[in-house]
Design a protein around this nucleic acid. Structure first.
Lengths: 354, 354
DNA sequence: GGCATTTTGAGGTACGCAACTCATTTTGAG
DNA sequence: CTCAAAATGAGTTGCGTACCTCAAAATGCC
């Protein structure tokens, strides 16, 4: 068998060391290695150093399976998410359900806590109530001082905390699983501008509320791009639809009445059904470039019909799984694969619908 | 604490059964359950049924950690990939390297076998040579009868096989990790057509070779969309650049000389540096919509400069990790999370550069 | 009904680590 | 130097599964 003279083999991973080997190398007992590994007290600093060196020198990784097996209690994670009919949140929950086999094979439990995430004090109270019972918490967080305090308390108590979809950058949360909303807004702006072709005219924006951090950030990014790259397009004042179908529809219908030269439309949040209705009632589906967020049953149909031109999307399945994996890695003390857990800004058009 | 009257908790996963429980429920011994679980011979069909029922009834999942710990030998996977300076393949390897800690914590080994994947007999021989030594093989496969036979042999021998980036649909491979190239071509077509605005004119295509399955499929999808949706654009015959910079540049330069009204350009494979050079030498960066594939150092720069308008991309990190996870799940007999392992067609523009 | 054959039970060992106890050694303060 | 406190060693148990052996029971065939 000499055919493989032009093939090379390169080993990526090898070891097979155990804690016993580390103990021997460091010249200490298993018990001491264990103490160091779990930063338990009662080890002289110098000894700690020797053990850590031995671990580093061998790039030793404790066997995940063995560690998990040896644990006394199972790990519990909580997902704190909004009540109500938000489709995107429902999708995240659906994907959590889909993981149940995966979770139970690892003896993990994930509980969904539904609460009013828009009321800071209610949300903060819900978070405080979790203290001590969970190894990790993922939360769709409103950025508010009392929420921040609640998060910091959890972290202080040793719970791993991940913010989901919406971040609280000033808190001590360990990780944020979600997209950069300014970049998402910029992307929407670039799409509206470029898909409008050489046309000039006005561009409408419908948002849930400018008080929501993610909506405000998207609008900011959108305007940034429009101002610098598409001066021929004139951005109208933001309509606030409160993510409500009827409100959005009516506001937009009035706007269409006043302006005949609208060539672009950016829907920042939910309320897509109402926006689409207003658009078709005005008979402008074909002339107006319509960009929105998230891939749902509805936006999928609108894309296929050509009413909607592009959807900016963050993959809910990815977010659900990334949040679980990050919490697990944090709890185990494993490194996080940043590349893997980063949520991308997806541009979805008709032909690359997932 | 009654504040949480409006919060609900929903448990996603619970159990904590073991094999012993299953044995008791099925009225058999542990040994018999073990025989059924690993389909070892010597169990009456009726007994098998009873055991399987007990497993199903309880949605029992063997503890992954315990199973992994109890295994005698470690699992070995091989990645069969092209030799040479293909940037995309190098990225996949880099991401495999990045997983080394993750792998060794699970006592998995991944070896990269470099070979000439474009020569069917060499590739087939490389695959045959792996037989028996590996639990799983991921291969960037050329679609050719002898390669298909080699894959089928591996599968026959009990090795799990995943095709990577390029598929061999007619083989018995267990899974394909990669994108739908027809849809990718369609997406490219839609982008070129829409970003060209109302302009009419000619569209150029540069490919590596129409003999490569993925390139041919992309071109097919591209033409499909152009014909049906952008009749005002005239697609020129495909230039073959063999993924070579100079060849691509020269061919394209000649084309620019002959046609003054080129408004769109689709680069199907590699050779992007040459394509970009031809474009700027002709002084047409601004008038021509340029869409290509993959996000590399180069395409990133071209996107930022505005020379390139969009890149269709498949995430190499995702592909590397998905291939490993799929092989592992197959080897363990775990279910595959299809949603998670599906490689999406990413549209990357300047503002959503990863 | 006796026999060979198939099926099943019972039990053991090993895997690598967490978590614990208790005895022993080392250390530093007085 | 003495003694209490701190640091460490040695050892045990259990986690849930894979994999193995050997004996016992059940089955089917003539």
């Amino acid at each position: 068998m000499d055919q493989d003279t032009d093939t090379a083999t390169d080993t990526v991973a090898t070891p097979a060391l155990t804690l016993k080997d580390i103990a021997r190398q460091a010249g200490v007992s298993l018990a001491t290695v264990d103490r160091v590994l779990h930063n338990r007290p009662g080890v002289r600093p110098d000894t700690v150093r020797r053990v850590k060196e031995a671990i580093a020198r061998n790039a030793f990784q404790p066997h995940v399976g063995a560690a998990e097996l040896a644990r006394a209690r199972a790990r519990r994670f909580a997902f704190v998410m909004p009540t109500g009919p938000n489709l995107f949140m429902q999708q995240i929950q659906a994907y959590l359900d889909e993981m149940s086999a995966w979770l139970s094979a690892r003896r993990l439990s994930v509980e969904v806590v539904a609460t009013d995430v828009f009321d800071p004090s209610v949300l903060a109270a819900s978070l405080e109530a979790l203290s001590g019972d969970y190894d990790g918490v993922a939360v769709v967080a409103l950025d508010h001082p009392s929420v921040r305090a609640a998060i910091d308390d959890l972290v202080e108590a040793g719970t791993k905390v991940v913010t989901l979809v919406s971040d609280v950058p000033s808190s001590r949360r360990h990780h944020y699983v979600g997209i950069d909303n300014i970049a998402a807004g910029r992307t929407a702006g670039a799409l509206v501008g470029r898909l409008a072709g050489q046309k000039s005219g006005k561009v409408a924006i419908v948002a849930g509320s400018q008080g929501l951090r993610d909506h405000a950030e998207r609008i900011f990014g959108f305007n940034q791009v429009m101002a610098s790259e598409f001066p021929r397009l004139d951005v109208l004042p933001v309509l606030e639809g409160r993510d409500d179908d009827d409100r959005s529809e009516q506001a937009l219908a009035r706007l269409f009445g006043r302006h005949a030269d609208i060539v672009g439309l950016y829907n920042v949040g939910a309320g897509t059904p109402g926006v689409a209705r207003a658009l078709s009632n005005a008979g402008r589906e074909k002339q107006v470039v319509f960009v929105g967020h998230d891939v749902t049953v509805l936006t999928r149909r609108l894309l296929l019909q050509g009413v909607m031109d592009a959807a900016i999307s963050q993959n809910p399945g990815h977010e659900a799984r990334a949040a679980v994996r990050v919490l697990l890695a944090l709890a185990r003390g494993e490194p996080i694969l940043r590349e893997q857990e980063k949520i991308r800004i997806d541009i979805v058009m008709r032909d690359n619908l997932p």
